[in-house]
Design a binder for these strands. Sequence first.
RNA 1: GGCCCGUUCGUCUAGGGGUUAGGACGUUAGAUUUUCAUUCUAGAAACAGGGGUUCGAUUCCCCUACGGGCUACCA
Length: 507
Amino acid sequence: MSADKKVRVRFAPSPTGGLHLGGVRTVLFNYLFAKSNNGDFILRIEDTDQSRFVPGAEEYISSCLAWCGLVPDESPQTGGPYGPYRQSERKARYQEFAERLIANGYAYYAFDTPEELDKLRQLTPNFRYSHENRDQLRNSLNLDEAAVKALLENGTPYVIRIKMPVDETVSLNDMIRGHVSFETSSVDDKVLLKADGMPTYHLAVVVDDYQMKITHAFRGEEWLPSAPVHLLLWEYLGWKTDMPQWAHFPLILKPDGNGKLSKRDGDRLGFPVYAMNWQDPKSGDLTKGFKELGFLPEAFINMLALLGWNDGTDQELFSLDELIQKFSIDRISKSGAKFDFEKAKWFNHEWIKREDANKLIPSIQHILTSHGVVVDDDNYLRLIFDLVKDRLTFLPDFWEQASFFFVEPENYDLDAIQKKWSDEKTTFFNNIIPALAAFEPWHTEEIEHFYKLAIQSSGLKLGELMLPFRIMLVGGKFGPHVFDIAKLLGREKTIARMKKGLAAILS
RNA sequence: GGCCCGUUCGUCUAGGGGUUAGGACGUUAGAUUUUCAUUCUAGAAACAGGGGUUCGAUUCCCCUACGGGCUACCA
């Protein structure tokens, strides 16, 4: 790759269901690399497996990227100069290149049926379709030309396989792992073109990366074993000088034990794995996403970025812009990272605290609406949010922490105060309620001062009269500073709640 | 089984031939908040093992162990 080429990277998911957090991290690293190099980020849909195609999955993936703020420069939706961006729509191209490989002796037709191969795999331990036994199978390597021609002409289904060379070493210089090499003899003759005329990943990724002028090909570590196939294809197709630079990202592992994190682990351990809610169109099953749980996209992105990458300092909180500034591939670690939901929660908490409240108001409004509450004063909502945001792990926690501002308490935590109640306290409240009703100005500090003064002159203890006041306004032993609550509730509601609360205590 | 990748506190990680091996999450203990949470302070907690190389290895090399990935007409 010459240095003056514009950086172009791609994320190439297959539209088979929910978008896994590992997928989002791959997107993120691609995106950060592209944007930090003034490059383009491309979304390409790998829909070559028709049997696994799931309707709606492509749109879902785009929505997830949009929510995360990782918007592609070119995609099936937006188009671009190197389309189409769906592999199913590029079908004809692959056939042509597969034939070219055969013509040049780098690939061959294979007529073995899947059933025949299954049988062989059962019968022969460690069966591989490779140089060791390809001359005993039904393919154009051992069939004579006329026989092959006849098979082709009468429509016998076939696949095209790469002919892996014997005893060669292919190697790549991975941007994360450095020099990695493979012996070609130990690699199978992978299928390049399937019987339905669609390419497999191996062919498609090379053809598309070439035609879309991809400069850097990043993917998960699970692809490393098939890298020699791709390397050879770049060479055999005559494009070696245009081959992208490779990087294989470490895997995201399950929190307990080891192994790749899967959707099942999330179900089992009680946390989301998908970026957004995903409803399977066939089964109707709904899988929860980070978005709907109440994660801020900034927190989700930040958490993912730190799973396998750091900037070398102690900083852990980064905005997307900061990440673009500071990202570099060579600070990605080589080893897999276990996903830690506790830490993910911490990131969200931090982002709820630091995010501009105005940005969150629409989401807060949405939460209130879902509980049947309408608040038309955004400014009032912002004041409340600022008061309770320290106590939120997820955005929807706002309801538990602040609903009493909008809905009068129905039940009171009477256990906390009733048994220590006294006539003196009743007298105190009977006096303070009308006094507050006339008190000016209705400001936090002034109310607090006035209330405490009243306690003093009553001869009662401060501690005995704080909690009852809180229970009257809130219903329970929680919430922010009680005089802040009174202030925001307003005089009228405060007085009404005190009266109602006192009645409940005395009942 | 074969091939490939990896290994620093429980977890995410910094570091790198000579350090009291640093930070964060979680955890423990205190303080503050006359509610709860937040916040603050302090503590416990790690270089997989064995060989080299070296005056000196957690750091470089090799082996072993362990873990993971791949091994489909799936990506």
